[in-house]
Design a binder for these strands. Structure first.
Length: 474
DNA sequence: TACACCTTTGC
DNA sequence: CAAAGGTGT
């Protein structure tokens, strides 16, 4: 009997073996599987931290593929060219991959699928990055949702299929095609800040993500409902980093969360809601892709935002003189993530007190976050700026001092990032910050804390006046 | 059409 | 208690 032809599994943002429909589909073809990751423009265009973190994820995926008797083939170039080349070399008759939902990737995938189909190759794109396809959730009138709560109510009862088990053995081809060396890609090259510093805060790979979930379910989920708003309480799951690279499946979180809910875990419903916020971001980005680059509400395109400016540079460096904002910005630079509460406070300060275009903040987060996600980042910034659907109204100006008193009353968070001291893992984020920053910033632990850029009262009034003026201009 | 509702607020 | 206005049923 003739052996079935190989299948290419085009790895994209699904760095896992468990519950991976595209991989499962490739295996189900019955022949050998050739996993390939392609460094194309979508990788070249990533921000510094996401690109570096992607490399760590690739390393981990390659190792787990090897444990399963397989390999990860790395290739650089145009996706279609690379796939055709590999098809010619391996004799593959089919290609599988996971859906993407942002415009450039959709455009690329559409072209690739048509071309491969023309070539007589079976091209199969699978779900897997999301729980619900963006077109699957509809209002009663047949449109897409613009408000989170109705979206949540519609989504929460949609049945979600069970997770697929991880394969223990993946059939290898007779001959492996050539692979680039990961190190030659220099994915960390743009990390001008100390990558070794950030590395200590990253949590890489499928096994680590599973452990993280287990740890979360084992305790923090009980305090999640109240505690998740407090940056110094470690009760968030931290899984956004792993979701971004597909190191854990959203379905895995969904079923784990549902089970916790049934068992009466206090924060389980809120955890599920957060998973669905990520879905909502992709729902919006899919139906209104302009959200990724332009104000969702058109009238905000006429708002007189300040472009990039010296105050924004102080904001990036954590030198605004506003302790809660500066702690947040240092957390970002040192650890590659930022607590959600801090994101709102820092975002509100940039867009309102400093009247700076939300895209300046979006761009900085894109460079610095290791959990960067195009849809969530755009949605978050437009929410805080007031320019998005279902956004916080512009006149809702966060007062960083009030927020600090309310959500960091102990000062633990500000102290940890501004003064020093060890976190639960024995790391010292404040010291790490000085090791991470470029010399050109000229900041040391001797640098005195700066004065405020603008008083909170004046900043608030200036923002409200700008908003009122824009509204009157129509 | 009417009506309830909208993650995360400040003062 | 003030601050709009849109969304979804």
């Amino acid at each position: 009997m003739k052996k079935p032809a190989p299948t290419l599994w085009w790895v994209r943002r699904d760095f896992r073996l468990a519950d991976n429909p595209a991989l499962a589909h490739a295996i189900a073809s019955g022949g050998p599987v050739v996993p390939v990751f392609i460094h194309d423009d979508s990788v070249a265009n990533l921000g510094a931290a996401p690109k570096w973190r992607l490399g760590l994820g690739l390393e981990a995926l390659a190792a787990s593929l090897e444990d399963a008797g397989s390999r990860l083939i790395l290739r650089k170039g145009d996706a279609l060219d690379v796939l055709r080349d590999l098809i010619a070399q391996t004799g593959a008759k089919s290609v599988t991959w996971s859906h993407a939902y942002v415009p450039d990737a959709i455009e690329r995938d559409t072209k690739v699928k048509a071309a491969l189909t023309d070539d007589g190759i079976a091209a199969e794109s699978c779900a897997g990055h999301l729980l619900f396809e963006p077109w699957q959730v509809e209002t009663k009138a047949g449109g897409f949702y613009k408000v989170y709560t109705p979206f949540w109510r519609a989504a929460r009862d949609i049945p979600v299929a069970a997770c697929l088990p991880a394969p223990t053995e993946i059939a290898a081809p007779q001959d492996w095609p050539h692979s680039d060396n990961l190190a030659d890609w220099k994915l960390g090259e743009a990390m001008s800040r100390g990558a070794d510093v950030v590395r200590a805060y990253a949590c890489v790979g499928e096994a680590a993500a599973e452990q993280r979930l287990a740890d979360f379910l084992d305790g923090p989920i009980e305090d999640y409902r109240e505690g998740r708003d407090f940056p110094s309480r470690n009760v968030t799951s931290g899984l956004s980093e792993n979701l971004t690279y597909g190191e854990i499946a959203p379905r895995r979180l969904w079923h784990a969360g549902r089970q916790a809910l049934e068992q009466g875990a206090a924060g389980a419903e809120h955890f599920l809601k957060e998973v669905v916020w990520r879905e909502f971001a992709y729902h919006l980005a899919y139906h209104t892709p302009r959200m990724l680059t332009r104000s969702w509400r058109e009238e905000w395109e006429d708002f007189n935002w300040r472009g990039d400016n010296d105050d924004a540079e102080k904001w990036r460096r954590g030198m605004t003189g506003e302790p809660m904002v500066d702690a947040a910005m240092r957390e970002l630079y040192t650890t590659g993530t930022m607590h959600n509460r801090s994101r709102m406070i820092a975002g509100s300060y940039l867009t309102k007190h400093l009247l700076t275009d939300w895209r300046v903040g979006q761009a900085w987060f894109e460079q610095t976050l290791i959990d960067w996600d195009p849809a969530s980042n755009a949605m978050g910034w437009q929410w805080v700026a007031g320019s998005g659907p279902d956004a916080s109204p512009f006149f809702r100006v966060f007062n960083p001092e009030t927020q600090a008193e309310k959500f960091d009353g102990s000062q633990n968070y500000r102290d940890l990032h501004l003064k020093g001291g060890e976190d639960e893992e024995g790391r010292n984020p404040a010291e790490d910050f000085y090791r991470a920053i470029p010399k050109s910033w000229n900041i040391t632990d001797k640098t005195p804390r700066p004065d405020r850029i603008i008083s909170l009262k004046e900043g608030r009034e200036r923002a409200l006046a700008a908003y009122k003026g824009a509204k009157e201009q129509g």
